[in-house]
Design a protein around this nucleic acid. Structure first.
Lengths: 158, 158
DNA sequence: CTAAAACCTCAAGCAAGGTTAAGGTCAAGC
DNA sequence: GCTTGACCTTAACCTTGCTTGAGGTTTTAG
């Protein structure tokens, strides 16, 4: 009880205050259970106060913002975790920290962006030119096995 | 047995042949079980031959290519199904068909692309300018509840 | 004609990403 | 000091997107 500083709302200043799980949930717009879940999966970290309650560094909000944004576009948690792992725990990341993380992600993000753009433009393109040769375009995707056959897959290929 | 035309490999021509589930799986690079699954979810359609085996129109390969590409970038099956539902079953889609589908998807694809680009560029940007004010950038995301609080979320905001 | 390969239907199981519920502790206000 | 809300842990459950298995039929190859 003497450790007032560990109680989430006990310091009026707000600048050096830690956050309780409920505060993190409210501010970041996710459920308390999701905060627990992310912590369990190692995406975020907390310390415990004298009464065993979680106390988060403010920077956790930033991490959660990254998590949410990445998830919106389909990046799996494991990958997000990997990227976030290059940031320091429980303190504000430095420029170098962000740089490391950025590097970890850039390739993947670019790949995702390119795939989406290809998907969008192929839809447009095949309509625009009227050839309907989607096959041709999809095949630029390495993961796509369609090309190897080459038999009758394309319909009106020019 | 008289309906030779319904047997997947019985016509030598290859142009008007239907595909068995195994052939579809092999050509599209997905498992037979996944083909079943997609059909069950309404993403693709089949007819049955005299022996109750599935026979697919060739165009199913194109649909699966779309499915796979979209999935790679995190579009959920339900949304893919919705988009695909504007294409005709069991026959090659016309230009108009693709146009309808494209329209259904464009907004979502663009949103996803923009989110990813924002994610990538924010990572770069915040490093480049040194301000680390990621918060500011994330908040352009409508789904993000962080902004409403405005209290102490930003750290070094300029 | 027969054996193997491919197919069928159901049902169960798995991984990811959480949510919900149960039973108990901690903390803040009156 | 006691009640009430926030928190704790553990465990079960849910949805999505499939895979695996069991038990039986159909096709194809020799």
């Amino acid at each position: 009880m003497n450790e007032k500083i560990m109680h989430a709302t006990s310091t009026p200043c707000g600048k050096h205050t830690t956050l309780s799980v409920g505060q993190v949930a409210k501010r970041s717009g996710i459920a308390v259970s999701a905060v627990h879940f992310y912590e369990q999966k190692g995406l975020i970290q907390s310390r415990r106060n004298a009464g065993n309650q979680r106390r988060y560094h403010r920077d956790v909000l930033r991490r959660i913002a990254v998590i949410k944004t990445a998830q919106q576009v389909g990046v799996p948690l494991a990958e997000i975790a990997h990227a976030l792992s290059s940031l320091p725990d429980n303190k504000a990341p430095t420029i170098d920290d962000w740089g490391r993380m950025s590097k970890v992600w850039l390739d993947d993000l670019n790949h995702r962006i390119n795939t989406l753009i290809a998907l969008r433009d192929n839809l447009n393109n095949c309509i625009g030119c009227g050839c309907l040769s989607l096959q041709h375009c999809w095949l630029r995707n390495p993961g796509d096995a369609l090309s190897k056959q080459g038999s009758g897959a394309r319909l009106i290929d020019s």
